[in-house]
Design a protein around this nucleic acid. Structure first.
Lengths: 128, 128
DNA sequence: CTGAATCCTAAAAGATACTG
DNA sequence: CAGTATCTTTTAGGATTCAG
């Protein structure tokens, strides 16, 4: 009975993990930290369009879920370094695969959208 | 210069694809359709907690981006079958990998969250 | 059966100002 | 430098009603 596969998808644990990579910034930050550790300000500079609020919030949540490590260096002024945990490095692999897919196929998606928007314009437009 | 990798991530095309798999239902539906085509009502029944509005909306968007095929059978009453396009099948592979990761590690994430919530309870609790 | 339309609530995200 | 605290805007999503 192939129904099992579907049930897995409906399983809450899976969805809760999916929720982690949802959100505008989660995946992006995991991918960045997969390359090397970053300090707070460095992340901000490399992601120009993130607010410090969202950066803090996203990092906190990733830390909470065990993906990210937060290390405070008691310098003056203080600096905080973020890096991936083992779990974070682990999930970064399927995420990288997804990014690669996106790089390869984003054009196909773009033209698909364009075609759809063009054809589907009966109702607003006038094809007669 | 390893900066290139980061730029790729910041690239808008990639983010736009990532946005497609964000959202509460997109991934779920792609994964389901990866198994076999479904009719509208079948999808509803297999995903008990989706509203028909979100189901319609999600399917429309997936169709628009080229992941999903929509075929209308002029039966009485009409029935509509949704299936993956080649592009949809293609993206379903990295998505499946992600699902598998989630199945394998959701427990680790769960306990990480629990630990964090426990330790971080100074401020609300009283560890003194 | 499929799905469009409207209304409404909740959650995500942005802007800004302030602190150790 | 690395945050926290508010406030406001925007978007996602749910409930309900109606239609081909």
């Amino acid at each position: 009975m192939q129904n099992d596969d579907q049930q897995k998808v409906l399983d809450c644990p899976v969805r809760s993990v999916l929720a982690d990579i949802s959100g505008k910034w989660n995946t992006l930050i995991i991918i960045m930290l997969a390359e090397r550790p970053y300090r707070f300000g460095q992340l901000r500079r490399h992601i120009p369009d993130i607010s410090q609020r969202m950066l803090t919030q996203t990092l906190r949540n990733l830390q909470r879920c065990g993906y990210v490590n937060r290390e405070v260096f008691p310098t003056k002024p203080p600096s905080v370094e973020y890096s991936l945990t083992d779990l974070g490095r682990s999930i970064s692999e399927p995420l990288q695969a997804l990014i690669q897919w996106a790089e390869l196929h984003s054009d196909a998606v773009k033209t698909a959208r364009k075609n759809y928007d063009m054809v589907e314009n009966r109702g607003g437009g006038n094809i007669r």
